[in-house]
Design a protein around this nucleic acid. Structure first.
Lengths: 196, 196
DNA sequence: AGGATAGAAAACGCTTCGTTCTCTATGGGG
DNA sequence: CCCCATAGAGAACGAAGCGTTTTCTATCCT
């Protein structure tokens, strides 16, 4: 027969339990890093059973991906200073703040997963890449309407350069993305590219 | 006492054994992917003992990083067509060919590791990032000497844009990097950025 | 109340890890 | 040739984590 009921608290159901699991997953991530993060310990920390985790997610990659989506629900607002450079700086600075936060670790786990598993990227690219590219395209489009951008600059490829450089910097350098780095990307790359 | 000696071939030593281990690691990587790659199976495939692996490498991340370095020994040659666009295209095309090769999987394992472990990036950035950036800087410098580049374009940040965009594309999109993508990066981003 | 479902705990067999131990092939030196 | 030191190969070990299954029952809904 089954064991004695040793439960330590009331059962949670549905979204309430999801929330607790995400919280536990992100805490565990910050505490031990992605490499040493295990389903077993997430379940423990969330005070739920592994079976409950596996009911929802096929495995660690899927859980962590959803935990990150939960941690970073939105891309942010479209800056509107009326000035190209300031808008660019503000947009990339917002991105840097997110990456520099304690939960930047969570972003690293996503990058690791999509590096390993191309299909994970296909599933989540809209969420992690295209939305931010769209925001940049809107920003550039607005600057174009103000006559601040050269005609050929209004392409998705050009709009994607800023976020791509930020992601690559985050991946290829340790530590936080400083304002100096953001300014360099804006002043040496984006402004010359967009203005000409 | 110890078991019977079931060995199936002569012992190898030093570099010869390293070579066999790298070969086994990369084959295993291509066959089962990075997520399911284990030290145990690499040792088996290389017909060596796990202890020999652990003598050389602290764990899987370190082994795979060295295996990749072994697989991609050089960055390639500096293109010299006399024409900016053609040089850019050739340089990035070479990078795409490497990433598109069967061993592009190996590059993915590196990207995953450096995403997870910032210290791994610090240790290997010269190898994986700065050398290619230096090659691009040399390319741009030569184009500048030919009068084909605007004065403010001669910075490490600008030189690094091409490779960064290639890496990011590789990470954020599935499948191979096509000539169309390379051409788009060159024509929509790099040429306008460098010429102005 | 009754019924269905999902949650919590325990247990299981398997795989892999990282380490240790034993035997000895191998290389180098005299 | 011999001797010595070292590293390689194979086996074994205990621990950890995996993914699954089972049992009991809290919880929700009608």
């Amino acid at each position: 027969m089954g064991g004695v009921d040793h439960r330590k608290g009331p059962r949670r159901r549905g979204d309430e339990l999801n929330q607790a699991i995400f919280t536990a997953a992100l805490e565990e991530l910050v505490e031990v890093g992605y490499q040493r993060l295990t389903m077993e310990r997430v379940a423990e920390r969330a005070r739920t059973s592994k079976a409950s985790l596996y009911r929802r997610w096929a495995g660690r990659p899927e859980l962590m991906m959803d935990a990150v989506i939960h941690a970073f629900p939105t891309v942010g607002e479209l800056p509107d200073t009326g000035e190209l450079r300031a808008d660019l700086f503000a947009a990339l600075r917002t991105m840097a703040d997110a990456l520099n936060s304690p939960l930047g670790q969570a972003v690293r786990s996503v990058l690791a997963e999509v590096a390993i598993d191309q299909k994970a990227m296909l599933r989540h690219r809209e969420r992690f890449v295209e939305r931010r590219n769209q925001l940049m395209l809107d920003l550039v489009r607005r600057a174009a309407a103000r006559g601040q951008v050269r005609p050929g600059a209004l392409t998705p490829r050009v709009a994607a350069v800023g976020p791509a450089l930020m992601r690559d910097h985050f991946l290829t350098h340790g530590g936080p993305i400083t304002d100096e780095v953001v300014a360099e990307i804006v002043d040496e790359v984006l402004v010359p590219l967009l203005r000409a």
